[in-house]
Protein backbone atom coordinates (compact mmCIF):
# COMPACT_ATOMS: atom_id res chain seq x y z
CA UNK A 1 0.00 0.00 0.00
CA UNK A 2 1.19 3.44 -0.88
CA UNK A 3 1.46 5.98 1.91
CA UNK A 4 -1.84 7.98 1.98
CA UNK A 5 0.23 11.15 2.35
CA UNK A 6 1.83 10.47 -1.04
CA UNK A 7 -1.57 10.03 -2.63
CA UNK A 8 -2.74 13.24 -0.97
CA UNK A 9 0.26 15.20 -2.22
CA UNK A 10 -0.36 13.83 -5.72
CA UNK A 11 -4.05 14.79 -5.64
CA UNK A 12 -3.29 18.18 -4.12
CA UNK A 13 -1.01 19.11 -7.00
CA UNK A 14 -3.57 18.45 -9.74
CA UNK A 15 -6.93 19.99 -10.62
CA UNK A 16 -8.94 16.73 -10.27
CA UNK A 17 -9.50 16.86 -6.51
CA UNK A 18 -10.80 20.43 -6.18
CA UNK A 19 -12.80 20.32 -9.40
CA UNK A 20 -14.60 17.23 -8.09
CA UNK A 21 -14.99 18.80 -4.66
CA UNK A 22 -16.54 21.95 -6.19
CA UNK A 23 -19.11 19.92 -8.12
CA UNK A 24 -19.91 17.66 -5.16
CA UNK A 25 -20.26 20.62 -2.78
CA UNK A 26 -22.61 22.32 -5.22
CA UNK A 27 -24.60 19.11 -5.68
CA UNK A 28 -25.03 18.87 -1.91
CA UNK A 29 -25.95 22.57 -1.67
CA UNK A 30 -28.46 22.22 -4.48
CA UNK A 31 -30.03 19.11 -2.86
CA UNK A 32 -30.47 20.94 0.43
CA UNK A 33 -31.92 23.94 -1.45
CA UNK A 34 -34.43 21.67 -3.23
CA UNK A 35 -35.30 19.77 -0.06
CA UNK A 36 -36.04 23.14 1.58
CA UNK A 37 -38.41 23.80 -1.36
CA UNK A 38 -36.44 26.80 -2.53
CA UNK A 39 -36.08 28.68 0.79
CA UNK A 40 -33.77 31.60 -0.04
CA UNK A 41 -31.64 31.05 3.10
CA UNK A 42 -30.52 27.70 1.72
CA UNK A 43 -28.85 29.42 -1.21
CA UNK A 44 -26.83 26.73 -3.05
CA UNK A 45 -23.87 29.10 -3.65
CA UNK A 46 -23.70 30.05 0.03
CA UNK A 47 -23.93 26.40 1.15
CA UNK A 48 -21.21 25.23 -1.25
CA UNK A 49 -18.93 28.12 -0.28
CA UNK A 50 -19.29 27.21 3.40
CA UNK A 51 -18.55 23.51 2.72
CA UNK A 52 -15.55 24.22 0.45
CA UNK A 53 -14.19 27.03 2.61
CA UNK A 54 -14.33 24.72 5.62
CA UNK A 55 -12.49 22.01 3.67
CA UNK A 56 -9.76 24.45 2.56
CA UNK A 57 -9.24 25.70 6.11
CA UNK A 58 -9.29 22.18 7.56
CA UNK A 59 -6.73 20.84 5.07
CA UNK A 60 -4.63 24.03 5.02
CA UNK A 61 -5.02 24.27 1.25
CA UNK A 62 -4.25 27.71 -0.23
CA UNK A 63 -6.90 29.30 -2.46
CA UNK A 64 -4.51 29.26 -5.44
CA UNK A 65 -4.32 25.44 -5.26
CA UNK A 66 -8.09 25.21 -5.01
CA UNK A 67 -8.52 27.53 -8.01
CA UNK A 68 -6.31 25.27 -10.19
CA UNK A 69 -9.22 22.85 -10.17
CA UNK A 70 -12.09 25.29 -9.84
CA UNK A 71 -10.98 27.44 -12.78
CA UNK A 72 -12.73 25.09 -15.19
CA UNK A 73 -16.04 25.89 -13.53
CA UNK A 74 -15.13 29.58 -13.24
CA UNK A 75 -14.31 29.75 -16.95
CA UNK A 76 -17.87 28.79 -17.89
CA UNK A 77 -19.10 32.17 -16.56
CA UNK A 78 -18.23 33.75 -19.93
CA UNK A 79 -20.19 31.30 -22.11
CA UNK A 80 -23.04 31.43 -19.55
CA UNK A 81 -23.20 35.22 -19.94
CA UNK A 82 -23.47 34.78 -23.72
CA UNK A 83 -26.18 32.16 -23.07
CA UNK A 84 -28.35 34.81 -21.40
CA UNK A 85 -29.20 35.73 -25.00
CA UNK A 86 -31.62 32.77 -24.95
CA UNK A 87 -34.17 34.09 -22.40
CA UNK A 88 -33.55 37.59 -23.73
CA UNK A 89 -34.47 36.54 -27.25
CA UNK A 90 -37.55 34.69 -26.02
CA UNK A 91 -38.78 37.90 -24.35
CA UNK A 92 -37.60 40.43 -26.91
CA UNK A 93 -41.06 41.84 -27.64
CA UNK A 94 -41.85 42.38 -23.96
CA UNK A 95 -38.42 43.91 -23.39
CA UNK A 96 -38.93 46.46 -26.17
CA UNK A 97 -42.35 47.35 -24.79
CA UNK A 98 -40.92 47.98 -21.32
CA UNK A 99 -38.02 50.16 -22.50
CA UNK A 100 -39.02 53.30 -20.54
CA UNK A 101 -39.63 51.71 -17.12
CA UNK A 102 -36.44 49.71 -17.63
CA UNK A 103 -34.31 52.76 -18.45
CA UNK A 104 -35.52 54.68 -15.39
CA UNK A 105 -35.29 51.67 -13.07
CA UNK A 106 -31.74 51.08 -14.31
CA UNK A 107 -30.68 54.64 -13.57
CA UNK A 108 -32.37 54.69 -10.14
CA UNK A 109 -31.18 51.22 -9.10
CA UNK A 110 -27.60 51.62 -10.29
CA UNK A 111 -27.16 55.08 -8.76
CA UNK A 112 -28.69 53.93 -5.46
CA UNK A 113 -26.33 50.94 -5.34
CA UNK A 114 -23.13 52.95 -5.86
CA UNK A 115 -24.03 56.02 -3.75
CA UNK A 116 -25.43 54.10 -0.77
CA UNK A 117 -22.61 51.52 -0.77
CA UNK A 118 -19.91 54.21 -0.75
CA UNK A 119 -21.83 56.51 1.61
CA UNK A 120 -22.42 53.82 4.25
CA UNK A 121 -18.86 52.47 4.06
CA UNK A 122 -17.43 56.02 4.25
CA UNK A 123 -19.54 56.84 7.31
CA UNK A 124 -18.17 53.70 9.00
CA UNK A 125 -14.58 54.72 8.33
CA UNK A 126 -13.60 52.77 5.21
CA UNK A 127 -10.38 53.98 3.53
CA UNK A 128 -10.17 55.02 -0.11
CA UNK A 129 -8.76 51.67 -1.28
CA UNK A 130 -11.75 49.84 0.16
CA UNK A 131 -14.17 52.38 -1.34
CA UNK A 132 -12.58 51.87 -4.77
CA UNK A 133 -12.94 48.09 -4.38
CA UNK A 134 -16.54 48.56 -3.25
CA UNK A 135 -17.76 51.02 -5.92
CA UNK A 136 -18.38 48.52 -8.78
CA UNK A 137 -19.77 45.71 -6.59
CA UNK A 138 -23.23 45.58 -8.19
CA UNK A 139 -21.77 44.92 -11.65
CA UNK A 140 -21.09 41.40 -12.89
CA UNK A 141 -17.72 40.02 -11.65
CA UNK A 142 -15.54 40.32 -14.78
CA UNK A 143 -16.68 43.92 -15.32
CA UNK A 144 -16.42 44.91 -11.65
CA UNK A 145 -12.87 43.57 -11.47
CA UNK A 146 -11.85 45.66 -14.48
CA UNK A 147 -13.45 48.82 -13.03
CA UNK A 148 -11.86 48.24 -9.61
CA UNK A 149 -8.41 47.98 -11.21
CA UNK A 150 -8.92 51.28 -13.04
CA UNK A 151 -10.09 53.04 -9.84
CA UNK A 152 -7.14 51.84 -7.75
CA UNK A 153 -9.02 49.19 -5.78
CA UNK A 154 -8.06 45.60 -5.01
CA UNK A 155 -9.51 43.37 -7.79
CA UNK A 156 -9.52 40.15 -5.73
CA UNK A 157 -11.33 41.95 -2.91
CA UNK A 158 -13.82 43.32 -5.44
CA UNK A 159 -14.54 39.79 -6.70
CA UNK A 160 -15.45 38.76 -3.17
CA UNK A 161 -17.57 41.89 -2.55
CA UNK A 162 -19.38 41.28 -5.85
CA UNK A 163 -20.24 37.75 -4.84
CA UNK A 164 -21.39 38.74 -1.35
CA UNK A 165 -23.60 41.40 -2.93
CA UNK A 166 -25.14 38.77 -5.20
CA UNK A 167 -25.79 36.39 -2.32
CA UNK A 168 -27.35 39.11 -0.15
CA UNK A 169 -29.62 40.09 -3.05
CA UNK A 170 -30.54 36.48 -3.87
CA UNK A 171 -31.43 35.72 -0.26
CA UNK A 172 -33.39 38.91 0.44
CA UNK A 173 -35.15 39.70 -2.83
CA UNK A 174 -38.20 37.43 -2.68
CA UNK A 175 -39.40 38.12 0.89
CA UNK A 176 -38.52 41.81 0.57
CA UNK A 177 -40.40 42.50 -2.67
CA UNK A 178 -43.33 40.35 -1.49
CA UNK A 179 -43.51 42.56 1.60
CA UNK A 180 -43.58 45.64 -0.62
CA UNK A 181 -46.45 44.07 -2.57
CA UNK A 182 -44.73 44.32 -5.96
CA UNK A 183 -46.22 41.85 -8.45
CA UNK A 184 -44.71 42.85 -11.79
CA UNK A 185 -42.20 40.06 -12.49
CA UNK A 186 -40.52 42.22 -15.12
CA UNK A 187 -39.62 44.94 -12.61
CA UNK A 188 -38.77 42.50 -9.82
CA UNK A 189 -36.36 40.60 -12.06
CA UNK A 190 -34.90 43.67 -13.68
CA UNK A 191 -34.10 45.40 -10.37
CA UNK A 192 -32.54 42.18 -9.07
CA UNK A 193 -30.26 41.90 -12.11
CA UNK A 194 -29.23 45.57 -11.76
CA UNK A 195 -28.39 45.35 -8.05
CA UNK A 196 -27.25 41.72 -7.72
CA UNK A 197 -25.90 40.75 -11.19
CA UNK A 198 -25.51 37.05 -12.09
CA UNK A 199 -26.16 35.55 -8.66
CA UNK A 200 -29.40 37.55 -8.46
CA UNK A 201 -30.21 36.49 -12.02
CA UNK A 202 -29.66 32.83 -11.12
CA UNK A 203 -32.09 33.31 -8.22
CA UNK A 204 -34.62 35.08 -10.47
CA UNK A 205 -34.45 32.19 -12.96
CA UNK A 206 -35.33 29.83 -10.09
CA UNK A 207 -38.33 31.94 -9.06
CA UNK A 208 -39.94 32.96 -12.36
CA UNK A 209 -38.90 32.74 -16.04
CA UNK A 210 -40.00 36.31 -16.79
CA UNK A 211 -38.05 37.63 -13.81
CA UNK A 212 -35.05 35.63 -14.99
CA UNK A 213 -35.10 37.10 -18.50
CA UNK A 214 -35.43 40.67 -17.23
CA UNK A 215 -32.75 40.07 -14.60
CA UNK A 216 -30.32 39.05 -17.35
CA UNK A 217 -31.00 42.32 -19.16
CA UNK A 218 -30.65 44.34 -15.95
CA UNK A 219 -27.30 42.71 -15.28
CA UNK A 220 -26.05 43.44 -18.81
CA UNK A 221 -27.18 47.07 -18.76
CA UNK A 222 -25.75 47.77 -15.31
CA UNK A 223 -22.41 46.31 -16.39
CA UNK A 224 -22.20 49.26 -18.78
CA UNK A 225 -23.69 51.94 -16.53
CA UNK A 226 -21.52 51.02 -13.51
CA UNK A 227 -18.45 51.55 -15.68
CA UNK A 228 -19.59 55.16 -16.16
CA UNK A 229 -21.12 55.87 -12.71
CA UNK A 230 -18.60 54.27 -10.31
CA UNK A 231 -15.66 56.61 -11.16
CA UNK A 232 -17.92 59.70 -10.97
CA UNK A 233 -19.45 58.83 -7.59
CA UNK A 234 -16.09 57.74 -6.17
CA UNK A 235 -14.73 61.25 -6.88
CA UNK A 236 -17.14 62.60 -4.24
CA UNK A 237 -15.36 60.57 -1.54
CA UNK A 238 -11.80 61.45 -2.41
Amino acid sequence: MTDPLLIWSYLESGPLLWLTATLVAYWIGDRIFRLSRGKPWFNPVLLSVIVLGGLLLATGTPYETYFEGAQFVHFMLGPATVSLALPLHANLRRVRKAALPMALALLAGSLTAVVSALGLAWLLGADFGLLASLAPKSATAPVAIGISEKLGGDPAMTAVLVLLTGMIGAIAVTPMLNALGLRDWRGRGFATGVAAHGVGTARALQVNPTAGAFAGIGMGMNAVLTGLLAPLVLQLFR
Partner: peptide, 21 residues
Amino acid sequence: AIGVSLIGSTLLAICVGALTF
Protein backbone atom coordinates in the same frame (compact mmCIF):
# COMPACT_ATOMS: atom_id res chain seq x y z
CA ALA B 1 -18.25 48.88 7.12
CA ILE B 2 -18.41 46.10 4.51
CA GLY B 3 -21.40 44.35 6.07
CA VAL B 4 -23.54 47.45 6.54
CA SER B 5 -22.55 48.85 3.15
CA LEU B 6 -23.24 45.64 1.19
CA ILE B 7 -26.49 44.73 2.91
CA GLY B 8 -27.83 48.30 3.00
CA SER B 9 -26.95 49.21 -0.56
CA THR B 10 -28.08 45.93 -2.13
CA LEU B 11 -31.49 45.88 -0.43
CA LEU B 12 -32.01 49.60 -1.10
CA ALA B 13 -31.00 49.29 -4.76
CA ILE B 14 -33.35 46.36 -5.41
CA CYS B 15 -36.28 48.17 -3.75
CA VAL B 16 -35.62 51.48 -5.52
CA GLY B 17 -35.20 49.73 -8.89
CA ALA B 18 -38.32 47.57 -8.57
CA LEU B 19 -40.45 50.45 -7.22
CA THR B 20 -39.27 52.77 -10.02
CA PHE B 21 -40.09 50.14 -12.63
